[in-house]
Simulated assay, not measured.
Amino acid sequence: MKLLSSWIVPKGYTAITIYPFIFFRDKTCMTPKIINHEKIHLRQQIELLLVFFYLWYGIEYLYYYYKFRNWKTAYLSICFEREAYKNENDMSYLKRRKLFAYVRGE
């Protein structure tokens, strides 16, 4: 994992994870909570061999966007984001996380 400050983070977001990198809008965004959130995404990406993660993420985003007609609601509805947001404050979550936890809504 490599933490980088970068312009590639879309407006409205603080960080984006593209294995093995975590890109932050700026250094002030590099908080333990956000780093933990992005580390959860790293684990999800590894489990789905990267390509399937991005494919699933994109399809689920499009489905929820079509359903809600709101990008923020669609983004927050994606199973990967639900898992990461639910557990971002738990710094020991990754030590006990089960495989494919996002499927079970953990």
Rank of each mutant, 00 (worst) to 15 (best):
E83H: 04
Y63V: 12
I22P: 00
Y64Q: 06
R69I: 01
W71E: 15
K11T: 09
D90V: 06
N89L: 10
K27N: 15
R43S: 07
R25K: 15
V103H: 10
P10F: 05
S92C: 08
E88T: 01
Y63G: 02
F80N: 03
L99N: 12
K2A: 08
I34F: 02
Y61F: 15
F80G: 02
Y63D: 01
L94A: 02
K86N: 10
N70E: 12
T17D: 07
L3F: 12
F21M: 13
Y13M: 14
F23T: 01
Y13C: 06
W7K: 14
R97V: 10
N70T: 07
A15N: 04
L50V: 07
T28G: 01
K98I: 11
Y13W: 09
L48W: 06
G105I: 10
R82W: 06
K39M: 14
K67H: 07
K33R: 14
T28N: 14
L76C: 10
Y61R: 05
F80Y: 13
T14S: 15
V51D: 12
N70H: 12
F24M: 04
R104G: 09
Y13R: 14
F100C: 09
R25V: 11
L49V: 00
E106Q: 09
I40M: 06
N89S: 13
L99G: 13
W71T: 13
M91T: 09
L94W: 01
Q45K: 07
K39H: 01
V9C: 02
P20D: 09
L50C: 08
W56V: 00
W56C: 08
N87C: 12
E47H: 08
R104F: 12
R25E: 15
T14F: 13
K33W: 05
C29H: 14
Y64W: 14
C29A: 14
F100H: 10
M30L: 12
F24K: 03
F68T: 11
L62Y: 03
S77K: 01
N87D: 05
K67T: 02
F23V: 02
H37F: 00
R43D: 00
R25D: 14
L3T: 05
R97N: 04
W7Q: 14
F23G: 03
G105F: 05
E81Q: 11
I59G: 00
M91I: 10
A101Y: 05
R69D: 09
K27W: 07
Y19I: 11
D90R: 03
S6R: 08
A84I: 02
R97I: 12
E106H: 04
Y54L: 02
A84Q: 04
R104M: 07
K72L: 11
Y85F: 15
E81P: 08
R104N: 12
